[in-house]
Design a protein around this nucleic acid. Structure first.
Length: 568
RNA sequence: GGCCCCAUCGUCUAGCGGUCCAGGACAUCGCCCUUUCACGGCGAAGGUCGCGGGUUCGAAUCCCGCUGGGGUCACCA
């Protein structure tokens, strides 16, 4: 199988030193021949713009937030409707949102549905819904309207066609009739040779420096053969730009493939559509994941072709799995919906995700931020460069912090429906009206606030406030039951029956007064009382728990427990 | 493999040439509070600042190289 090395290249066909037009040594395929060592390298050909100079970097945010035209700041989140909202996507959306809000600008959500095959019906609306549930509300979107619509790319096809035509006319783009098989074959051949897979420019027309005669192209066009349109990436120029989080980044155009702009189904590719839309929608700052960094040269080139001023770019570090690979579904939940369904609150999720890659810096010890505080304090210069592992423990802790401070009424409104659902599942011997009252729930909440991980646990984890226990934790029973426990307990029940004041203070006094002459410690009764009333060996202050449950319930549960003879 | 990005306790991070033999948070462990659990308080353990060279009177901080990790190389986004 050997492919001869490239023949010593003769003089360039045209004035352009294009290696692509070098004579081919082997007929098997028209491979991309690596450039001769003496190619002409033109650094800084593209005049891209330094957004800020190192000196101004340290200055106020305000400078950074001004675009060079002093326009209104507009950011965008551009998901493709292929499924759920990813936590990484949520963070990207959040940073865009925070940045726009802080600058008093607009935050736009645009649906990038140029891949008809991967499109999932309804995913666009779901994405938006989850975003809003998380607390991020766009100013413009398919649902919110705006003056820059439509906000779905599939409804902007005419626009892309028009701009593509322009590129064709300006010789920045060309038709390509290569088949998928052909491309694949070429790719594999190149890979086998250890080369970067790249389109071989077979269909690059002669007048653009290639060697396909215009007649051939016209013939195919007349036949109605399927085609794509590719951009012609200039040879050997240096493309550089200043990334807000990463600083200067430079690419050599020789490593950039002739990107497909329009697919054979008439849809644009992401690269083409997003550049046009970002420009038309007057997006001033593109804040997106680092996975887009390597397509910067393509995008920048397009701005250059059109003569548009590019927006500022900020490429965010990736969110990582515990093994430090890009956060993926395989290693746990990644859908925002899943977290919401598990009971995490939107505030906690947002708070957590905001801190993954951003911090206020310099001596701050704050970990809990409201959305408003984030808006006030956020800045892109304080976004880190390194990827961050998604650490669920920290999220759990943040969630708890929020539960501690959440107003009782707010919690009640959430748990009431949950409670009703539980009550529908099984019978309770308690007064259903009472246990559903706000007053009762408020008491439960105060007792359990610091012991619960999620709001939903005010019902599930605290079920003994609504149902008599059916089982008693054997380990707890074993630990707390002594020889004469049942006996003493039986006696104490009769005391309780004569007690009308079931306030925590009084119960404590009663129990102490009962226990003292019998030469027992309070704990002798406290633990069994807890177990018979809750089924478990842990929980809130016993006296307060009994107070909330009420005399009737407590006595019923104690008698039941004695009958069941739990220690046996 | 080519190109690009990144690199401070297990994890998230502070640190932008001296005040750092590196500070905080989560997780872990211990003590205190306490009838239990949780909360809270106090404390411990945990980093040769990936490695090697420079620059400098002085480097986690600047430069170069290496190593490691990640991303990307589609008519997917």
């Amino acid at each position: 199988m050997s492919l001869s090395p490239p023949a010593p290249s003769g003089a360039p066909v045209s004035g352009l030193p294009s290696p692509f037009s070098a004579p081919q040594a082997h007929p098997a395929s028209r491979l991309y021949i690596p450039p001769a060592p003496h190619y002409e390298y033109t650094p800084l050909f593209i005049k891209f713009h330094a957004v800020y100079k190192p000196e101004t970097h340290k200055q106020t945010n305000f400078n950074l937030m001004q675009t060079s035209l002093g326009q209104r700041v507009r950011t965008r989140f551009a998901p493709s409707p292929t499924g759920y909202l990813h936590v990484g996507g949520l963070r990207t959306a959040l940073y865009n949102y925070l940045y726009a809000r802080k600058a008093g600008g607009d935050f736009i959500v645009r649906i990038e549905d140029t891949d008809q095959a991967r499109k999932v019906e309804g995913a666009d609306k779901d994405l938006l819904k989850t975003l809003e549930l998380s607390g991020i509300v766009p100013d413009e979107s398919i649902e919110h309207g705006g003056n820059f619509g439509p906000y779905v790319q599939s409804q902007r096809l005419d626009i892309y066609k028009q701009y593509c035509q322009q590129l064709l006319e300006q010789n920045h783009a060309y038709y390509c009739f290569a088949t998928a098989e052909e491309l694949e074959e070429n790719r594999q051949l190149q890979q086998k040779q250890g080369m970067q897979p790249k389109y071989n420019r077979k269909w690059l027309p002669q007048h653009m420096g290639g060697d396909m005669p215009q007649g051939e192209i016209q013939k195919k066009l007349d036949e109605g053969a399927p085609y794509v349109i590719r951009m012609k990436v200039p040879d050997y120029i240096s493309i550089m730009f200043e990334d807000i989080v990463r600083g200067p980044v430079e690419f050599d155009s020789a490593t950039v493939d002739d990107q497909v702009l329009m697919k054979s189904d008439g849809f644009p590719t992401y690269h083409f559509a997003s550049v046009i839309d970002d420009h038309l929608m007057e997006i001033t700052h593109i804040i997106r994941g680092e996975e887009w960094l390597s397509s910067m040269p393509k995008h920048l080139l397009l701005y250059e072709f059109f003569g548009w001023e590019p927006p500022k770019f900020a490429h965010l570090p990736l969110l990582l799995n515990p093994d430090r690979s890009k956060l993926s579904k395989r290693q746990g939940d990644v859908a925002v919906e899943d977290f919401l369904n598990k009971g995490y609150s939107s505030e906690a999720i947002l708070n957590f995700v905001a801190l993954l890659g951003w911090n206020e810096g310099e001596g701050t010890e704050q970990e809990i931020y409201s959305l408003d505080q984030l808006i006030e304090k956020f800045s892109l210069e304080r976004v880190g460069k390194a990827g961050a592992v998604f650490n669920i423990d920290k999220l759990n802790w943040i969630e708890k912090q929020y539960i501690k401070d959440r107003p009782t009424e707010k919690i009640i409104s959430v748990i009431k429906p949950l409670l009703q659902e539980e009550l529908g599942k099984k019978e309770t011997e308690m007064d259903t009206e009472r246990i559903q009252s706000d007053e009762y729930l408020a008491q439960v909440i105060e007792l359990m606030r610091e012991r619960v991980n999620f709001e939903s646990e005010f019902v599930t984890f605290c079920d003994y406030f609504y149902f008599d226990p059916e089982e008693y934790d054997p380990a707890a029973v074993k630990k707390r039951w002594k020889q004469d426990t049942n006996e003493v307990l039986a006696e104490f029940i009769t005391v309780l029956e004569d007690t009308d004041d079931f306030s925590a203070d009084n119960l404590e006094a009663v129990l102490k007064a009962f226990v003292e002459p019998r030469e027992k410690k309070p704990a002798f009764l406290i633990h069994p009382l807890r177990i018979l009333n809750s089924g478990v060996g842990f929980g809130p202050s016993l006296y307060h728990m009994l107070e909330v449950l009420g005399k009737q319930t407590v006595i019923r549960r104690l008698k039941k427990g004695l009958e069941r003879n739990v220690s046996k």
